[in-house]
Design a protein around this nucleic acid. Structure first.
Length: 424
DNA sequence: GCGATCAGCT
DNA sequence: CACAGCTGATCGC
C-alpha cells in the first residue's frame, strides 16, 4: 500500500485515515486529547472509551466500524494525486474489549493487520471471526500479514482462557478465608473477572477509575468500589508486588493472583518484585493444590501466576498462519527481547501443529543458521531495546517503517523490515 | 508552566 | 527481562 494513505496504531505522521486496534497504551503513543490529524476508525467499544481515556478528544473525528462491517475509503494518492479506493473490514480480535483486526483490500492486494489478538482454537468467537475473515477474502491470498507475534515461539504454551479462568476460580475456592487480589491493567481481563463473579456469585472490587471503565463497557452489577462487599479485588498490575501482598497479609490473610501469559517468578534478588525467567518457564512440579493445574505457578506462599493470556499462544499462532497461508508475514511486536522472525517458524509451521515442540527443529543446522540463532528452536534472548518498532504504517513496498528512527545499520537483523516482508 | 518524550522500573 | 503502564526527568515551547 502506498505511503501516506492509512496508519494503524500510529499517530505521529501524516495519513488520510487512522486506525486504532485497541486502547492499550503501547498502541496509542502519540494520541492525545489534542490529536486531530484526521478521521480515526475504531470499534464501537473503543469509541465509547476513547473520550474517557483522552478527555476532551474531538469525537467528531471518530468513525465507528462494527465487527464484520466493510468500509470504503476514497483517498488520494500523495504521489500522483489520483483517487485511491481502499476497502477495510473489521474483524474481532478477541484481545481486550473493543480490539479489532483490520483487513485492507485495494489495488495493492490484501493486507491484514491483526493488532493484538487471541484466537483460541476451540473458541466460538474465534471461529466466527475466522469465518468472517475467510468470507471477505473469498479465496484470495493475503499479501502481507502484520501479526501479533508476542508469543511467537514454540516454548510459549498455555491453555485457553476458559481453562485459566477455572484455575483462578479453583484457587479462590481453595482459600475460603482469604482475601484475593488479582492484578489487571487499565483495560483487559474483564471476562476473567466477570466469570469469577458469576461462578462464585460475588461482586469484584476495583479501583474507582476502573469502575468507570467497567460502566462504560456496559457492566452494571458485577463491580464495586465498596470495600465491605467482597473478598475478591482487582488491583493495578504495577502495584502487584510481594511487598504489597505481604503488606495486605499484615491486615488479613491474602492471596495474590497474577493472570499472565508470561512466566512470572520470584525475584530473589530484591524480594519485593516479580520476576520472569525466560529460560525455564515450563511449569515446575508444584505441591498439593496445583497438581491439576498445568502452567499455574506458585510464586511464593501467597501468590500464584495463572496463564490467562489475551495474546495467542504459539500453537494458536501457528494454526492462524496455516489457515491464512499469507504470502508474507511481519511481526508487529518487536520490543520484546524474545522476538524471533516469524518467518523462521511459519515457513515450517506444519511441524509445530502436531505439538512436536522443540524436537523437530534440531534436525538441520542450516535452519539454525538461517534463523541467526545459536540454539535450535530456542529463542535468541538478546536484549535490543532499539528494536522497538511495534507500530507500523503500510507503505507501497509493504515494508515496515521504523518508529525509533535509529540508523539502518543498527537494526537488529531479525527485525529487518525487508527481510520480513519482501521475501517468502 | 505545560505537553511530549524518554529512561527507569515494576 | 515486561503482556502493559506507572513515575519522574528532561526537552522544547
Amino acid at each position: 500500500m502506498e505511503k501516506g494513505l492509512v496508519s494503524i496504531d500510529r499517530w505521529n505522521e501524516g495519513s488520510q485515515a487512522y486506525f486504532l486496534t485497541h486502547l492499550h497504551d503501547d498502541h496509542t503513543a502519540g494520541l492525545s486529547a489534542a490529536w486531530r490529524r484526521g478521521p480515526l476508525f475504531c470499534s464501537p467499544v473503543t469509541a465509547s472509551l476513547l473520550p474517557f481515556r483522552f478527555r476532551g478528544f474531538d469525537v467528531s473525528l471518530i468513525r465507528v466500524i462494527e465487527v464484520g462491517a466493510t468500509r470504503a475509503l476514497d483517498l488520494v494518492s500523495p504521489a500522483s494525486g489520483a483517487p485511491v479506493r481502499v476497502l477495510v473490514t473489521a474483524i474481532d480480535a478477541h484481545h481486550c474489549p473493543g480490539a479489532l483486526m483490520y483487513l485492507f483490500h485495494g489495488t495493492f492486494g490484501w493486507v491484514l493487520y491483526t493488532g493484538d489478538f487471541r484466537w483460541e482454537l476451540s473458541s466460538e468467537r474465534s471461529q466466527l471471526a475466522k469465518r468472517m475473515l475467510l468470507d471477505v477474502l473469498q479465496g484470495n491470498t493475503i499479501d502481507v500479514l502484520y501479526m501479533d507475534n508476542t508469543y511467537c515461539n514454540p516454548s510459549f504454551s498455555f491453555p485457553p482462557r476458559e481453562v485459566a479462568t477455572k484455575q483462578v476460580i479453583d484457587i479462590i475456592v481453595m482459600h475460603p478465608d482469604h482475601d484475593i487480589v488479582i492484578a489487571i491493567g487499565n483495560l483487559g481481563k474483564e471476562e476473567l473477572l466477570v466469570n469469577i463473579s458469576k461462578a462464585l456469585n460475588i461482586k469484584i472490587r476495583v479501583w474507582p477509575e476502573r469502575l468507570r471503565t467497567m460502566h462504560l463497557l456496559g457492566y452494571k452489577d458485577v463491580f464495586t468500589t465498596n470495600t465491605s462487599l467482597t473478598r475478591v479485588r482487582a488491583i493495578p498490575r504495577y502495584s502487584f508486588t510481594f511487598e504489597t501482598i505481604d503488606g495486605l497479609n499484615q491486615m488479613r490473610p491474602t492471596i495474590g493472583i497474577m493472570p499472565s501469559g508470561l512466566p512470572w517468578l520470584l525475584d530473589t534478588s530484591k524480594n519485593t518484585t516479580l520476576y520472569t525467567s525466560l529460560k525455564s518457564h515450563q511449569s515446575e512440579a508444584s505441591p498439593d493444590l496445583l497438581q491439576d493445574m498445568p502452567h499455574v505457578r506458585k510464586l511464593k506462599h501467597n501468590a500464584y501466576c495463572v496463564p490467562y493470556s489475551e495474546h495467542s499462544c504459539f500453537s494458536e499462532i501457528a494454526q492462524f498462519i496455516k489457515v491464512l497461508q499469507p504470502s508474507n508475514i511481519s511481526g508487529i511486536v518487536s520490543s520484546t527481547y524474545i522476538y524471533i522472525n516469524p518467518r523462521y517458524y511459519f515457513s515450517r509451521v506444519d511441524r509445530y501443529l502436531s505439538d512436536k515442540s522443540c524436537e523437530s527443529s534440531k534436525s538441520g543446522k542450516s535452519e539454525v543458521d538461517k534463523m541467526g540463532s545459536s540454539s535450535g528452536c530456542k529463542p535468541s534472548w538478546q536484549v535490543r531495546k532499539e528494536w522497538k518498532i511495534k507500530y507500523v504504517s503500510l507503505t507501497s513496498s509493504g515494508h515496515v517503517r521504523r518508529v525509533s528512527g535509529l540508523p539502518r545499520a543498527r537494526r537488529g537483523a531479525k527485525i529487518e523490515a525487508s527481510d520480513s516482508v519482501s521475501s517468502s
